[in-house]
């Protein structure tokens, strides 16, 4: 016997073109990004030297990048909270955060993925863009000599979240009719079947080993809590909460 507890609908909006323009908009599978976006950032001058946003086309991976700090989807809640209701997400485009100090020191702790992108990114994995996907690079250069602490990744992820939120606000307003795909997921109790738990051990040792849990937006940052601040204690999440982006990996 199956009992459906709650429903999560994920609608996908495909992007096949990303370009800079006067404003951030999504229309006819094309995403424009405000070219003056970085001027609007409220950056901590003690931490950030420079932040740039770059559009990397598929096949243009023969470029040098600093350490890949994260790759995230552009998703937003339209109805309900994380784990139920309606989520809109873009396909065909993903955000990549790169970070290093001005002197070249990489934002990494246990090996670094800086180098030629095509050799540092294996496309087509669950956690990486596909070979035909566009990457929006959020490229961060930190002040030379800045103290390497938890403050840095938190500031970088927070700043990037502000940028992604500009796109999310547009994504939120799209009609269901414009969606390319619709996926329904249920948190289900299958009475009488074998009860199984998945345990995910996630980083929590300090800088570059942290995770932001339960953000307000899927795979977001704001509104969430660092699992270091929660003493790394076990937290149970429902399958739908998990697949609705309950974890922002700051590893």
């Amino acid at each position: 016997m199956e009992k459906e507890m709650r429903r999560l609908v994920i609608r996908t909006f495909h992007v096949d073109r990303v370009f800079f323009s006067d404003s951030t908009e999504y229309r006819d599978n094309a995403l424009s990004i405000d070219k003056n976006m970085t001027n609007k950032f409220d950056m901590d001058a003690d931490i950030f030297d420079d932040v740039s946003i770059n559009i990397i086309e598929p096949g243009d991976h023969n470029i040098h990048v600093n350490c890949i700090m994260d790759i995230l989807p552009i998703s937003t809640k339209v109805l309900g909270v994380l784990g139920e209701g309606i989520t809109h997400t873009m396909t065909g485009v993903y955000v990549m955060i790169n970070g290093a100090e001005k002197n070249g020191r990489q934002m990494s702790n246990f090996g670094s993925s800086d180098g030629i992108l095509s050799k540092r990114l294996m496309a087509g994995r669950a956690g990486t863009p596909g070979p035909n996907d566009i990457i929006i690079q959020f490229d961060v250069i930190l002040k030379e000599g800045v103290e390497f602490s938890r403050k840095l990744p938190l500031a970088i992820h927070s700043l990037c979240d502000g940028f992604v939120q500009e796109i999310r606000e547009k994504l939120k307003k799209l009609n269901a009719g414009q969606a390319d795909e619709k996926h329904e997921f249920y948190d289900t109790i299958r009475k009488g079947k074998k009860k199984v738990v998945i345990i995910k051990q996630i980083g929590g040792q300090g800088a570059m080993h942290d995770n932001q849990l339960f953000p307000s937006e899927p795979s977001g940052f704001e509104g969430g809590f660092s699992n270091i601040d929660m003493l790394n204690m076990p937290m149970i999440v429902s399958p739908n909460e998990y697949r609705d982006g309950a974890i922002r990996a700051m590893t």
Binding site: G192, V197, I198, K200, Q205, M235
Partner: peptide, 24 residues
């Protein structure tokens, strides 16, 4: 996540949830 996908889809399994535990 492929792990969640595979376990959640299996009709012989009652997936209770995902337990996130940190690494102090």
């Amino acid at each position: 996540d492929p792990l969640l996908d595979v376990v959640a889809k299996d009709s012989d399994i009652d997936l209770q949830g995902v337990l996130l535990v940190g690494t102090p």
